[in-house]
């Protein structure tokens, strides 16, 4: 049993150490926001942040993740407040099919955490590992600039805008109530 810190919560994961983090998230923990695209770190659909660094979870053995801080798309919003990237993405209607967008957002929010006002060249460098078959690149670029602008206007510290930073214990499963 591996203990992982995912989105600020200590999770126990019953998975072999060589299983990629992606499948531990998706098939073991049921966290399906992180997507499978290529299985060889070519497309970025599986991007999560490990200690704040965008990481391709499809090639990252889960055994190496113990003691690291893992943030997935489910943990991008902080205290129920969408990340400025999520707001900008909605404002500009960025997603088409939407499948790659979890990965795009994890890469973009990591970029903004280190470069709150990125240039187009910074965006090219940070985002070229994330493929989008629908071709939303022009809107992703605009939305990153827009997120930077929103953060500036509202005094949001983009280095601290991502998810819950500290680990909390795993919540006990709650029994599913039938609807009346």
């Amino acid at each position: 049993m591996l203990k992982l810190n995912i989105n600020g919560i200590e999770r126990e994961v019953d998975a072999p150490e060589d299983m990629p983090l992606l499948w531990a998230l998706r098939d073991v923990l049921g966290m399906t926001g992180t997507k499978f695209g290529c299985g060889m770190a070519m497309c970025g659909a599986c991007t999560v942040q490990v200690d704040g660094v965008p990481t391709r979870s499809c090639v990252m053995p889960v055994g190496t993740m113990v003691g690291r801080r893992i943030t997935t798309i489910e943990g991008l919003a902080r205290d129920g407040q969408p990340h400025p990237c999520q707001r900008a993405w909605m404002e500009l209607s960025v997603p088409q099919c939407g499948y790659c967008q979890s990965g795009q957002l994890m890469s973009a929010s990591a970029l903004l955490a280190t470069k709150p006002e990125p240039s187009d060249e910074d965006i090219d460098a940070a985002m070229s590992g994330n493929l989008c078959r629908c071709g939303t690149y022009p809107r992703i670029r605009s939305a990153i600039h827009r997120a930077a602008e929103l953060a500036k206007q509202e005094g949001i510290d983009l280095a601290r805008a991502i998810g819950a930073p500290e680990a909390r214990p795993e919540p006990q499963p709650v029994s599913q109530e039938e609807e009346p």
């Binding site: 926001g33 489910e74 919003a77 999520q86 209607s93 997603p95 967008q101």
Partner: peptide, 13 residues
């Protein structure tokens, strides 16, 4: 604005 953006930016779709 697209009506399907929200679930596509928080991983819930």
């Amino acid at each position: 604005p697209r009506l399907d953006s929200a679930p596509k930016v928080d991983g819930s779709a």
